[in-house]
Nucleic acid binder design. Structure first.
Length: 319
DNA sequence: GCGTCCAGGTCTACC
DNA sequence: GGTAGACCTGGACGC
């Protein structure tokens, strides 16, 4: 195992948000989803994580300095050297995006008042944001490893990719493993990827997505963020191995990524016949989500699953 | 112990 | 444009 790269504090940021905003719920969701890296740490309201900016590993320590009604986040940025102005600006923009700080959820909360299950979720998770990935490759690795696999194996594949190929960084007394860079994965053979990470047929998908990003043939996350959501998903689906489900996960304006598992949950929430063939069930839950919630459907997905994690954890296999 | 089924999708070939 | 079959692997289940 390689020694972690030591990073020093190079920048402090104070980020304002649109209320209501809950930092803790946004970066540390009740369903146990990590904010950015499965190897980040969260303790007493502070998160230590990181991502790559212009192929440079960046460490982030962040915590709330405000309230739900007057949100403010302090972020300390760590690097292996001073950041050029352009990279400082990139880090600040990306952090605000990943935190969902500038997302106005008033429209979603209005919608939530019209549905019992959402009114409850809004109450339980008030101020929580959907938090986009810092880059397309981080989202693609999650989406592809979730495909056609039981959760235990999905978790194992993703952790192996990080452990085998991700950068280890050490800062503020913590060590975090970052998402492997596309350039690193593009330099590894498909068979080696398959063997070291137990990826099966997914190895070629991940390798081809990495190559597309290195060539500049894939859209950047900030470009996707600026596009209409349907266009962003269309651009993502042009990548090999990214279908409707995966594009819904990766898109910065999250879609409604129903699969076999979540279709059964949402069939119950939406009052559909859960005994129908699973292919039909997935199509039906997608249609209902589109019709009732439009572009807020991603928030519906995240709020419902995380509210179940609080109220009915056994339904999610959480105990 | 062994065989079968199926799982938190996507692509390709074929019609 | 719609659909069947292939794709890796491993846990659960029946025998």
């Amino acid at each position: 195992m390689t020694q972690p790269r030591r990073l020093d504090r190079v920048l402090g940021l104070e980020l304002e948000g649109i209320p209501p905003y809950s930092f803790d719920l946004s970066v540390h969701k009740p369903a146990g989803w990590a904010w950015i890296s499965p190897f980040e740490a969260f303790s007493e309201g502070t998160v230590w994580t990181g991502f790559n900016v212009a192929e440079r590993p960046i460490g982030i320590k962040a915590w709330s300095t405000g309230t739900v009604s007057e949100p403010s986040v302090r972020a300390e940025v760590y690097s292996d050297g001073p950041l050029p102005d352009r990279e400082e600006s990139l880090v600040e923009t990306r952090l605000a995006m990943c935190l969902g700080l500038r997302e106005d959820v008033a429209g979603f909360y209005e919608l939530a008042e019209r549905h019992d299950f959402l009114r409850q979720a809004k109450h339980d998770l008030y101020g929580m944001r959907c938090t986009p990935f810092p880059d397309v490759f981080t989202g693609a690795i999650l989406a592809v490893t979730l495909q056609w696999s039981a959760l235990k194996r999905s978790v194992g594949m993703r952790r192996s990719l990080y452990l085998e190929f991700g950068d280890r960084i050490s800062f503020d007394g913590r060590t975090v493993i970052l998402c492997p860079s596309p350039r690193r994965i593009a330099s590894v053979g498909v068979e080696e990827l398959r063997g070291r990470c137990n990826l099966g047929y997914r190895a070629s998908f991940i390798r081809r997505i990495a190559e597309a990003i290195v060539r500049g043939d894939a859209p950047a996350m900030d470009e996707l963020y600026a596009m209409p959501p349907s266009e962003a998903r269309r651009r993502l689906r042009a990548l090999k191995g990214i279908g409707e489900y995966s594009a819904d996960i990766i898109s910065p304006r999250m879609g409604f990524p129903v699969d076999v598992w979540s279709a059964r949950i949402f069939a119950r929430v939406f009052g559909l016949d859960a005994s129908r063939p699973v292919g039909r069930l997935i199509a039906d839950t997608r249609r209902v989500a589109d019709d009732l919630f439009g572009e807020w459907k991603g928030y519906v997905f995240v709020y419902v699953i995380n509210d179940l994690a609080i109220r009915e954890p056994s339904l999610l296999g959480m105990g």
